[in-house]
């Protein structure tokens, strides 16, 4: 079977990254028992990664929501079924947040709501209103990477990179929660993020390095 190529680096344009994800989704759909996905109809219909025709039924049930994402205020008209993950990816073009399982079992979709890590695949977009949403795109300050992003690069905390945005969002929270006292504590508090490539040892190193840096121990 043909495996997907490495994801293009961040500076590449969104369309090729989307192409990568589309291919990955097509491959994983063949591997797992893919249940019908809850892609709901949206006002501006965008291509559906999962190949399911966009639902247009219940158009009268559309609701207007306001999301505060990475400091921007976004106004969207959505079906109440739309998850925060699909709103970010399909409506706001924030493709950094990944869809792995869409069932709460992998952590690829981890984002922060008011600074707390949550799974965007099990969060309804309508219920994220009024909260400060931070995605991987909102972590860096201008051109300067967040210390956790820098540490993942330095420690080789990934192989294919698919789980990485979720790992990094989780790691930022893990550090701010104070759960980096030992390797086993880091592993326990990072257990909600699975890595198919098994980059775990380097992920633990990256979390340790970033935690030390953020405490001001290392420059």
């Amino acid at each position: 079977m043909q495996l997907p190529a490495d994801p293009p680096p961040d500076h590449e344009d969104g369309s090729s990254r989307r192409e990568f994800i589309r291919r990955l989704a097509a491959i994983s759909a063949g591997l797992t028992v893919a249940a019908p996905l809850g892609r709901a109809g949206t006002v501006t219909e965008k291509s559906n990664l999962q190949g399911e025709p966009p639902k247009t039924d219940g158009a009268e049930g559309l609701i207007e929501i306001i999301l505060k994402v990475n400091g921007n205020t976004e106004r969207l008209v959505v079906d109440p079924r739309v998850t925060l993950l699909d709103a970010l990816r399909d409506r706001l073009d924030l493709m950094g947040t990944k869809k792995g399982c869409d069932r709460g079992t992998c952590g690829a979709c981890t984002v922060h709501l008011d600074g707390r890590r949550v799974l965007s695949c099990l969060t309804l977009a309508v219920m994220a209103q009024g909260k400060k949403i931070t995605t991987i795109e909102g972590l860096a300050t201008g051109d300067e990477l967040h210390p956790v992003q820098a540490a993942f690069i330095k420690c080789d905390g990934f192989q294919c990179g698919y789980c990485t945005p979720g790992q990094i969002m989780s790691a930022v929270a893990c550090i701010s929660e104070g759960h980096t006292g030992s390797d086993s504590e880091i592993r326990e508090y990072m257990s909600g993020n699975l890595c198919r490539c098994g980059a775990y040892p380097n992920i633990v190193e990256a979390v340790k390095m970033a935690a030390a840096k953020m405490k001001g121990e290392v420059n």
Partner: peptide
């Protein structure tokens, strides 16, 4: 719906099909 971690999962699987969701 409270946290949604059970019900959103089961609505996607169509194990639960509520016509109305009360937050």
């Amino acid at each position: 719906i409270a946290g949604g971690t059970t019900i959103v999962d089961l609505m996607k699987l169509e194990v639960m099909k509520p016509p109305k969701v009360v937050d």
